[in-house]
Every structure is written in structure tokens, then in C-alpha cells.
Nucleic acid binder design. Structure first.
Lengths: 336, 336
DNA sequence: CCGCGTCGAGAAAGCGCTTTCTCGCCAGGA
DNA sequence: TCCTGGCGAGAAAGCGCTTTCTCGACGCGG
């Protein structure tokens, strides 16, 4: 407290060195446990550091070391619990190797997601990118620059990725509904150009092939509760007795919208979600959905990332399965 | 693509300078729009930068500039939509001044929250701290080091802060329940040592004073749905006809737990939450709660922060009001 | 008694960028 | 013709830290 600092800011390694009457090199070594000399010197350095309230500058350290000890995660919507789970899994896995995770959310401006990705990437050592809506060509233009890079829910040659088998999951949900006697289904789709939406549609195509008597009407939707609520009227007009929503948020909004229109779930219409977010079990009625191992997804993404950072070969791309969870929002077809 | 880079990594400003046959200084100026010389030179530099795929190192730039252009936000639980809203508000406000927000979540290890805060602080220019459970003395030991610092939901002399009037909010909720005829209330408390929990208790004390005939039983709880569910049995045993939960998550879990015990909400017991998270309207029954302007909280935090960063005097501390939202989870006292 | 090995700690370069200072050059006025 | 002023662009220092290299001092064997 009795010492003047160089700038308005924090004391630097030079201040500590001066205070302890040693060289900056010695302070550095002491602070990093690489000091081999006399214990009394080390003690003096530590005492000075404490006295001055010294904190090493991460910035300078990172620059000198060439590594920051942090990786970036870009997600389209942190408000979606599914991505929070990915974040949690990634953070935990990375922490066990001494890495921090910095999150950036592109909700506000999907348009400059590439910029966002590029910027946060350059604050960190690597990037885990979850950008379902980014056009392929934008991604192609970026992937070299973003490297080391791991993709979530999206594939690209030369870039390790982990993902969910949305096609299989939605197919299972559809089969579940078909098994309940439904023949006229509707699908409230995800955001335009969403890769995982394309996967779901592909899964639905397979269902159509193996169930010739079943129709699946596709409707525009989105990824949020509001999108779901807006789709309610469209859904009613299709006359479908069962609806597959893009994800749980859409399903929740949709159920709410249907209720407002006097349509009962599941008596009049069955509704399913996707993701099994924590709230899915608390909705009215509780949501039938496909459970997705999101934390595992995050952990496995780190697995690839660690290999990349070590210069090893990452594990092959992986597609984790989703599993149907039947709750109260789906039921047998009742109306003639 | 035909050029070898110095390290395995990205081309540096020196590479661009060499390629364009100018000095690094000129490249720097061109890249930052501070270049005043001949346009042809600037063009050459830009061309070289593009050709090499040059991206300025944020790290080096920050070190040289003494500012990173980012601020850190530490929250206790990103899984809680309330904190997501704060994040959203802060991010948006900061973005309008050209700042990015980096989030860190201390869910995993509340114990080293101080370390976390200190570390992310030193990656950024400033810190917005939302750490309701950090002991006062730990905070006191830290606040100089963390400066510039803005606190959320917690006050400290000399540190700007913004917060919610939890005392007033919970008092209004209690009055609402009392108005419905309830006389035996219970409060499922928040985490031990949570500052905002203390505020709520204080609000309840005021209610007790002005309503001598009313009892409010305090029960241990927590901040998550699981904590709420665990409290269900305790709640039933108190015989209370109305329960104030620490927040919406706890309320949701509690309602679920009560249902499992055969207790109906609101017929047997009324339940209220706090925060009005987006899901509160979708629960069964829809949750009576206190709406909190979380985004505003984030925006106002930035307001203080901006002043701090500019060396101006921040606006005085503020306590935003919460407002009761009556939905279906609270109803008149029915049982004798 | 000299030289060599060893050990403790400092000097200095370098990480990639910014910015002040400086310098060379050219045009214009005396 | 000479000097001054201004302008375009480079040299170099510096941001705070790490690390290689270096050097002086000490202790030991020959």
C-alpha cells in the first residue's frame, strides 16, 4: 500500500522484483514454481507479491507463453437449456485439464456469427463452434482461421465433430406417435437453414418411406417458445392429430398456443418435443420428448479438442443417439 | 497460402509488413484506420493482409493498448434463466459501447468463486460480479483487486451496485397470500449465506410485524428445482396453507414434490416463486411469482460500468422493484 | 594453488501489437 | 539558391511476462 504503481493499474512483475530486490526473472520463476535457488529468496518474493497485491497479467502471460489456457464456445442461444448443458459438460471436461471455457452467444445477431466466432477464437487457444445456421460457405471460408476447431451438431471434412442423431431421434418419436394410432402428423420445423433441422427432416423422410399410410405435414417454426406459440394456429389448420416440434421450447410454446385456441393436449392433439430440457417434465402436460445427452456432447467435444491441442489425432466423429421419453403430452388418437 | 508462417500459428503483423514491403507500423495504422499516407500503400497492405489471411492477435493488441474491450460477468448459475436475462441485458448494453461480455459460471465450485472472479477479471477490463453466496470478508479482501467492479444484488461501500428489492417483492407476495385468507405461511429459503435470501427474510420480518396473526415458518431450501422437490415433505409437515419459495426454480420443484405427495396446488397449498422466469407461465399450475426486470438489471450494471471505465462517477446504487404476477399456483385458503 | 564443474540469479531477447519520435523528402516562399 | 514547413513512413521503445543464455561465485579434485 505504500508503493506507487507504475500506471493507475496493478503492480507489475517489475514492481515486485524491485520490492524484493531481485530480478523479474526470479519473480517469474517463483510465481510459477520453477524456482530452484535459496528458499529465503523465494520467501522474500512471495512476501513482496502479497504486500503489493500483485496479480500476474493473464494477457502478458498468454502472449509470452503463446497459449491462453482458455477455449471459446459459441452457441446460438444460451437461453436454451440444451446449450447450457453442452456448456456445462464442456466446462467440466476442460477444467479437468486446466482449461477455462469462455462462452459467446450469437442470439442477438446471427448475421455476424462468423465475426463473433473469429473474435472469440482469437482470445483463446481454440474454438468449439455450435452454429447450426451458419451457411456452409461461410464456415468453409472460416475453418482454417478458426483452427483448432471442433464442431457441434454439424459435420465438415477435416474438422472433428460431435453431434446428435436427430434423424434417428425424430424418427423414433414419429414411430411412437404412429404406434399410438396417429396417421396425420405435423412437424413444426426449426429455423431456416438449420443443419439439425435438415437432419430431422431426413429422419422424417425415412419414416414416410416405411409408413406409406402416414402423412407428415411440415410447417415453418423456429427454435423458441414464441415460435411455437405462433405455429399453433397453423398446426390446428392442418388437422394433424399429432405434432412433432423442432425442440422442447417450441413444443412448450405450441402447447400453450394450442390451449389458447381451445385445443387440448394430448386429447385433441399429441405434441412431442426434442432435447428433454430440465423443464420438460414440469410442463402441463409433461412433455414427451427425445432425451439427448448434451453434457456428454460437451465432454466429447473436449475430448476431440484436447487431442487437437496436443497435436494428436482426434477420435473419429461421433453421433450420439437420442432416446424417446414418453410423458403425458402424447396419447392415443382419440378422434375418429 | 504460398507463404510460410513464422510459427505453426497465424501470420503476424510482421509477415504482412514484409509481404507488403512496408513497416509494421504502417500495417498497424492501416488496420486501425489511422493511416494518413498514400492510398496505394494502404491498398497494398490490405491486399497482403487478405492474401496471408492475417488476423490481428487480440492478445498482443490488448497488451499494447492496455485494454481488452471485454468485461467479465460472474454468475452463480447460468442454468437459472434469471441470470441469463442479466447476461442478455448486460451483453446488449455493453455491445452498444463496443464491449464484449465473457461469462463465467461458478456452479461447479462455489468455493473458489473468488479465484474464478479474480482470474476472469484479469482477462478483461472490468468485472460485473453476481456472487450472492460469497462471504463478506472474502469480497472485502478482493474488491480492490477486482476493480473496476460492479456488484449485482449485493451492496458494498465504495463499489457501485444494482439490485432487486427482494424484501419488498417477497413482502408483496406474502401480502397477496394473506389477502387470500392464508394465515400459516412457510418460506422455503435460499442457499445458506445467500445475500438475497437475507433480504427476503428481512421482508418477511416486516410482514410479520404488520400482520401479528400470521405465522411464517422458515424452512431450509436452496436455489434449484431439486432443492424445491426435497423441501416438499418438510412443507407438508408444517401444515402451512401457502408457501413462498426462494425463487421460481424452487417453486417448480416444490410443486412437483407436493404433487408426488398427493398435495394439490393451489387447492391444498398455494405456492409462489420469485423471478418470473420464462417458464413460470408454463408450469402446472402456472406460477404466481414476482416479476423482476433482470435485463434492466444487466443494462443498469453496464451503465455503472461504463462510467467507471470512463473515469466518471457512476450513478448511485439502485434497487429495482419486483412486481407480483398472479397466476394459478396461488388461491384462496380452502381448508378450515 | 589452479582449473573446472555447479549452482544461484540476473541480463536480455522475444511474444505481436501500438505509438511516439524521428527522419528524409519535396514544395513553396524569400 | 537556400531555408522552412509539412507530409509520408520507418525506427524503436514499450505493454508485462517467460525463458534462454550468461556470468560470477563457490567448492572440489588434481
Amino acid at each position: 500500500m505504500t508503493h506507487a504503481f507504475r500506471r493507475a493499474g496493478f503492480p507489475t512483475i517489475a514492481d515486485v522484483a524491485e520490492h524484493a530486490e531481485v530480478s523479474p526473472a526470479t519473480v517469474s520463476r517463483v510465481m510459477n514454481g520453477r524456482f530452484a535457488g535459496e528458499e529465503s529468496v523465494a520467501d522474500r518474493v512471495r512476501a513482496s507479491a502479497t504486500a503489493l497485491g500483485y496479480r500476474p497479467s493473464h494477457l502478458a502471460r498468454s502472449l509470452a507463453l503463446g497459449r491462453t489456457g482458455a477455449i471459446a464456445l459459441v452457441v446460438p442461444d444460451l437461453g436454451n437449456p440444451a446449450f447450457q448443458a453442452v456448456l456445462a459438460g464442456l466446462t467440466r471436461a476442460a477444467a479437468s485439464d486446466g482449461y477455462r471455457v469462455l462462452v459467446a452467444d450469437s442470439t442477438e445477431s446471427p448475421g455476424d456469427e462468423p465475426d463473433l466466432a473469429s473474435e472469440v477464437r482469437h482470445r483463446c487457444d481454440a474454438l468449439v463452434l455450435c452454429a447450426p445456421r451458419m451457411p456452409d460457405d461461410r464456415l468453409a471460408a472460416l475453418d482454417a482461421e478458426l483452427s483448432p476447431l471442433v464442431l457441434v451438431n454439424r459435420e465438415r471434412a477435416g474438422v472433428p465433430s460431435v453431434g446428435i442423431d436427430y434423424a434417428g431421434g425424430i424418427a423414433q418419436l414419429a414411430e411412437h406417435l404412429i404406434g399410438l394410432g396417429h396417421e396425420h402428423l405435423a412437424y413444426v420445423a426449426g429455423p431456416e437453414a438449420s443443419v439439425s433441422d435438415r437432419h430431422r427432416r431426413r429422419g422424417l423422410d425415412r419414416v414416410r418411406e416405411s409408413n406409406p399410410g402416414v402423412s407428415i405435414h411440415e410447417l415453418p417454426g423456429g427454435a423458441t417458445t414464441d415460435d411455437g406459440r405462433r405455429a399453433a394456429d397453423n398446426v390446428r389448420q392442418t388437422g394433424a392429430t399429432a405434432v412433432l416440434a423442432f425442440n422442447d421450447l417450441v413444443a412448450i410454446g405450441l402447447i400453450d398456443g394450442l390451449s389458447a385456441l381451445g385445443v387440448r393436449v394430448p386429447d385433441d392433439v399429441s405434441v412431442t418435443g426434442f432435447d428433454d430440457v430440465p423443464f420438460a417434465r414440469y410442463t402441463a402436460p409433461a412433455l414427451t420428448t427425445a432425451a439427448v445427452p448434451h453434457e456428454r456432447l460437451g465432454a466429447d467435444a473436449w475430448d476431440r479438442m484436447r487431442a487437437l491441442l496436443r497435436g494428436e489425432a482426434p477420435a473419429p466423429d461421433e453421433l450420439l443417439p437420442a432416446s424417446v421419453v414418453v410423458r403425458a403430452s402424447s396419447g392415443p388418437r382419440l378422434r375418429a
